Amino acid sequence: MVTRSTKEQIVLAAERLFALHGIEGVSMRQIRVAAGNGNNSVVQYHFGSKDQLAQAIFEYRLPRLHERRTLLVAELRPKDLRSWVECQLRTVLEQSEQPGSHYLNFVAMLWQCGRRDVFESMPEEFRSSVTAFDQQLKALLPHIAEPLRTHRITHAMTSIVHAGADRERARSGGQAVLPFAVEVMSLLDGMVGFLEAPVSEAALATLDGTDPAGVAWRTFL
């Protein structure tokens, strides 16, 4: 039996509840109860606020995710868009296989609730890693004009997270899921096709008078 510290129990309870209800939809008391702790002030003592607790979830999950992506890059030695996207896709979907994980649904819920500010306050080391990976993808898509290129990459990365969240949710509920290899290859085909698709004249025309900042969002994970 795994013995978890009080802080880890709180982080995992918060991850599960935030994934279901969003940060605003959960109280500190509910997190404490879900963590099985009888101390009324234990969550505030360790984390101060729900936003700080959300950051603690990132700090708990991101080291393994970023380490895994780094190992995949070293293993696959990606040279083209498909192999770079595969490194990200495998990393995310492997998280959905982790017992007791609600992390991908937590991230998806943050996005759904418009809490992109939480991503912006990630620890710098992880934001730098995301930025470096983002720049690598951009370099492989020179035919896509900005800000459409950043917008397209963001949506591809978001779609990967949501696919992983669906798989994570199905597994936690005991539902059937596609074999892992089938899911990876099918999604990989779709994401690469989406990213590489040529930009139409109609799409380019929509950029006239558009604020680029409203089109190009930051990626995450």
Rank of each mutant, 00 (worst) to 15 (best):
L62V: 11
P123W: 04
G209P: 08
Q136E: 10
N39W: 09
H151G: 02
Q55E: 10
V11I: 15
L148H: 08
R16P: 09
Q95Y: 04
V161M: 03
G48M: 14
T3E: 00
S129G: 15
S128C: 13
S186W: 06
E201L: 12
A170C: 09
A14R: 00
E24W: 04
G190W: 02
A35R: 00
Y45I: 07
A216H: 02
A163P: 05
M185K: 13
Q9M: 13
H21Q: 12
G193L: 11
L207D: 02
A13Q: 00
M109L: 12
S27C: 08
G48I: 15
E125D: 12
A163C: 12
H151Y: 09
Y103S: 00
A145D: 15
P142M: 05
S159V: 06
R69S: 07
P99Q: 04
P63A: 03
G190C: 04
E59W: 06
L71Q: 15
R116K: 06
V26H: 00
A35H: 00
R171M: 13
D189F: 08
A165D: 01
E59V: 14
D211V: 09
T210S: 11
P147S: 03
R115C: 04
Q136D: 07
F18M: 10
V107Q: 04
R82S: 12
I31W: 01
P198Y: 07
E201V: 09
V118S: 06
Q30G: 09
D211L: 14
T131H: 12
A202V: 14
D134R: 07
E24D: 13
S186T: 14
H162Q: 09
E75F: 07
Q175C: 13
G214N: 08
S129L: 15
Y103Q: 01
T3W: 00
Q44F: 14
A205W: 02
V73D: 02
P147F: 04
P198T: 12
R152L: 13
D134S: 10
E86Q: 08
S128N: 15
V33H: 11
W84F: 14
Q88H: 15
Y103C: 03
R218N: 10
D208E: 15
M109F: 05
Q52R: 10
Y103N: 01
L89R: 00
M109G: 03
E124Q: 14
E120F: 07
E8M: 02
L71M: 14
P212M: 11
R149D: 05
H46V: 03
G209M: 08
S5E: 01
V92T: 07
V182Q: 13
A202R: 11
Q52T: 08
K138H: 08
R171K: 12
H102N: 15
V2K: 06
L148D: 08
F47E: 01
H143A: 09
L93S: 03
Q136S: 08
E94R: 02
P179G: 05
V33Q: 15
F220C: 02
G190S: 09
V177G: 06
A19D: 00
G209S: 10
P78C: 08
R171T: 10
H46K: 07
P78N: 06
L188C: 02
A202P: 05
T210F: 11
D134V: 04
Q135P: 00
L221H: 07
F106V: 00
D117R: 08
G190N: 05
K138P: 01
Q55M: 12
K138R: 10
R127K: 07
G114Y: 15
A203C: 03
H66K: 09
T70M: 04
R115V: 03
G164A: 11
T154L: 06
V26S: 00
C87W: 02
A35G: 05
E97W: 06
G214H: 07
